[in-house]
Amino acid sequence: MTAYLVAILTSVGFYVVLALALNLQWGLTGMLNFGLAGFYALGAYASAITTELGGMPFLAGFAMAIVVGTLAGLAVAGLSARLVGDFLAIATLGFAEIVRFLALNEDWLTRGPRGFPIETRPIPEGLSREASAWAYLGLVALLVVVAFVIVERIRTAPMGRVLRAIREDELVPAALGKDVFRFKLKAFALGAALAAAAGSLYAHWVQNISPDHFTTALAIGVWMSLIVGGTGNNRGVLVGATLVMVILEGSRFLTGVVPGLDAERLSALRIALIGVLIIVTVRFRPEGLLPEPRIRLETPAKGA
């Protein structure tokens, strides 16, 4: 049971990092990214290729994932950030599909649909099964903390104010002298880098990745985390991601408890539960469980 909980918490961790990345891009800046899974996959494969084919240590793979993720983010945003809302959404969705099809078809590099086995591990050799599970959880927790601090610091800094202004109406910051395009590039690329970093750690945790780990369904789960938890609120995103994951995973235990529920029905029920959660949220609490916090700017006392 403990082993199971540790595994669940670890996968919640990946979700949270992805949700924080999306919160930076969409929650703060208002850039639709339906291709989050693409950046996650890119990080996973970049890392796996570096360590397995390149024979480099985990940290090199992790760094490579961040570099590739940043560059891909810059490219996607640079080519499409001038596009408004829906068009950016389509461009990012297209990007994720391109990544998935490349991973599927470029066997020589990605091992294709059979899956890419990954031997390199970020933790010391010779740990017991249980100890290494805990070590992975520790690493994911570390990544969550780093991602949280980054996105939260941006949110509360003058940079975050510009990003939120862009989200509200990008013509206004432009008329006030802010280079909207550059801000969007930075926010998008940093979000992409975070997603890729999560992808790298994920790859070395599951130790076998294939394109069907990085479907749009995964990205939709992350979107749900934002909607339920509270778009624009990093704590809310944490709560939302945990809640969505608990429902996805926890509903597993309903078989045997609820009569007539088999595995197939269960997977359908799981999606239905998430759907209900979204509808209830949007109907009764459209800002999510934790709404975007209001920032109070007080004039400092004289002489302070």
Binding site: A157, P158, M159, V162, K186
Partner: peptide
Amino acid sequence: PGEALWRALVR
């Protein structure tokens, strides 16, 4: 100055 990314992080 806090509009630059690194300054937003390092403060």
